[in-house]
Amino acid sequence: MAKSAIKKSALRVSENGLEKKTSSKRLEVLKTYKIYIGGQFPRTESGRYYTPVNKAGEKLANVCLSSRKDFRDAVVAARGAFGGWSGRAAFNRGQILYRMAEMLEGRKEQFISELLRQDSTKAAAQKELNLAIDRLIYYAGWCDKFQQLFSAVNPVASSHFNFSVPEPMGVVAIVAPQGDGLLGLVSAIAPVIAGGNTCVVLASETKPLCSVTFAEVLNSSDLPGGVVNILTGKPAELISGMVNHMDVNATIYCENNSSVKASIREQSAVNLKRIYFYDHLNWQKDEGQSPYLIMDTQEIKTTWHPIENIAGAGGSY
């Protein structure tokens, strides 16, 4: 846990006069970093863990080493949540994303402390956190607008009303960027769920702390369980299972490993899932956010319906 938070609570205790100077003796309660599936925080079913270390060689935590089974469970949760989430009013999705930003803001200290432990500087951590919050706000605003921008009423020649609208693809598997443990995660998730998809995210292997804490933010943000599922573990173990899964509609890969990219593309052919490589995006910059990123996980649906033309301008009736 963040040290500052502990100090604060210790202070409060002493002010209450119940105890004096207990902080030095009190045993710190360590947080268990669990994964997030279907709105629950299970441990990995495999019972495995790994222990990432920072540059200073300090152990970050014992983190779940998620298995393919965990991924499959998460896909089931995501599929189950898709109908409800995509069926919600876009306005309501916007409210929930905004709520996520609020909750993130409220737990600033904790995230900063985690970022610091994951080799960030104070200024960089502050910046990353602020960007992450702002990014959620940015996409909260897009939820009920991008459809207007990317829809079309098509002037077909026959007597039909014809329109094209974006619709969410379904379940999206995301391999989050290794750097920007918080910002990268948020930036990859937000456009996907803003558009009504549900997702399973594999967090940064080396910087996983914020992802689990972010799951706690999600869990307190009115976001229905299963919309975002967060796993920790090793991409090398999991990617192929993510790309092979027949019930995943799209895969987003945020690293620039060309052999991994080639294998993702090859394996995606199994059900022709859509694949996107966000290897060139700098999440810290403006290019890290865009409605075009929302559109990546949208399908365009075109609907036709006849237009009755009786009595219209001397119609043929």
Partner: peptide, 11 residues
């Protein structure tokens, strides 16, 4: 209420 309609303007 229609089927197999196509138009250059329609995706």
């Amino acid at each position: 209420n229609t089927f197999n309609k196509f138009d250059p303007a329609s995706p």
